[in-house]
Each structure stands twice: as C-alpha cells, then as structure tokens.
C-alpha cells in the first residue's frame, strides 16, 4: 500500500521537477519547487511508515511547522522588501 503511495508521490515529484527545469519565469520554478516541498514532506511520512519507524514523522512535522515561518518570511519579503518603495502593498 505504501509502495503505491510512494510511487505516485515520486511520479508527481518528477512532473514538478520538469516544470522547475522548464521555467519559463522564476515564479513557475518556485511554484513547482513549493509543490515539490510538500511532496517531500509526504514522502518522508511514507518512508517512515514503510520502514515502521513512525518516530521519523517528527521530521515531517518539524518541516511543516518551519515551512509556515518560511512562507511568512516570503510574504514579508514581497510586502516590505524592495517592492514596498512608494508605499505599494502596505496596509
């Protein structure tokens, strides 16, 4: 069962990385990379289940928590970074 799940996730990862390589804009790459990241969390969880070591789930959990901070940082970067000149996007 986990084999099937793992294979499906791996196929998705291959497709996502195709888009990472194709581009064309940097945002396409980031979009694909973001999807890739979620799938990596998922595959870590699947590996944990496959090998029966469910304590490995903590890694997926840690990344899910850290990911949240990362996204807030990205948003802040676009909200108050170099694009904020001229007051655009400020509340």
């Amino acid at each position: 069962m986990y084999t099937a799940a793992g294979l499906a996730i791996l196929i998705t990862m291959v497709l996502a990385i195709t888009r990472t390589l194709l581009g064309p804009t940097v945002y396409d790459r980031i979009l694909a990379v973001n999807m890739f990241g979620t799938k990596t969390v998922l595959i870590i969880a699947v590996i944990a289940f496959m090998s029966g070591r469910t304590d490995l789930l903590d890694i997926a959990l840690a990344y899910a928590l850290i990911n949240f901070i990362g996204i807030v940082a990205v948003l802040k970067f676009f909200e108050y970074g170099e694009f904020s000149r001229g007051g655009r996007g400020r509340p």
Partner: peptide
C-alpha cells in the same frame, strides 16, 4: 484514499506541466 490522493497528485503534476 491512497488511490484518490495519488491520482490527484499525478493529475496536478500533469497540470503543472
């Protein structure tokens, strides 16, 4: 659930390409 999840994951991958 795994079939649904895997299928939608792959379809999403196809879509992104």
């Amino acid at each position: 659930l795994i079939v649904i999840g895997g299928a939608f994951g792959i379809i999403g991958g196809v879509g992104i390409v």
